[in-house]
Amino acid sequence: MKNIIWTEWLKVRTYRTFWVMLLLAVIIPVAANFFMANLFSNGDLKKATQLMGQPFSFPDIWLSVASISSYTSGLFAILLIILTTNEYTFRTNRQNIIDGWDRREFVYAKLFWLVALSVLALVVSTLTGIIVGLSYGDTSVSFEDYRYIVYYFLQVLVALAIALLIAVLLKRAGIAIVIFLAYSMMIDNVVSALLTRRFGRIGGLLPLQAGDELLPVPLFGKMISKEVYEPYVYFIAVLAYICLAVYVVFRKMMKSDL
């Protein structure tokens, strides 16, 4: 594994696109959190907010940060798509095998990015929570309800697993990014809404929707009463989707011509 991580590091060390994308993927959710905290801490909005709780004080800050950050997990997904489809564009997926990686090791290399980027999202959101909570909240640091950040981590993992699957199946950066965005911004939501209308709460079990169900919209989410499963159901569903996506990626990589 050390060899795989070192080799992947050599691939991105001086790759400008990688660093720019990474910077954006980190800065944008942090900035969004500060922006929202700032917005809801001034003037009339502050009074309105206080009627419904204190979203930027501990412990509610964790749900707020998780929820706001979850809108930007696509940035990490696009980065993973670029890193993966690059191998196909440059045909280095072949070269890595020719040079002496097992096909399995090639998949591990991409799974390393999946995990590394998700952990980065976890760390960034945790730090953001602490800093925003201390700057805008009225309470001292508390890790009560930190589970929402863990849900967010899980949601990033599933988004990246879907992104990796799309990248491996489509092999071209442009089309893979378009399909991923279409899926994450529309298809998953629409299908979920249609299913929910016809069959009830089962519609919430789609991959990205299941993650969303774990992260109710702060302030308003708690007031909308809708029929849902217990959180562990969504938790298991998300884990199952991650496993399924990784399994299909492995199957595809182990069997097909490169």
């Binding site: 070192w6 080799t7 001086t14 440059f90 045909r91 070269q95 095998i97 020719i98 040079d99 002496g100």
Partner: peptide, 30 residues
């Protein structure tokens, strides 16, 4: 495969990396 030097069809390298850095990757995999 690590102990065999192989050139198959076309040169496959990372376009954005220098010749030297590309060989660092090959060396690392080997």
């Amino acid at each position: 495969r690590r102990s065999i030097g192989t050139l198959l069809e076309t040169p496959n390298f990372y376009h954005y990396l220098s010749g030297w850095k590309n060989l660092e990757i090959s060396a690392s995999i080997k």
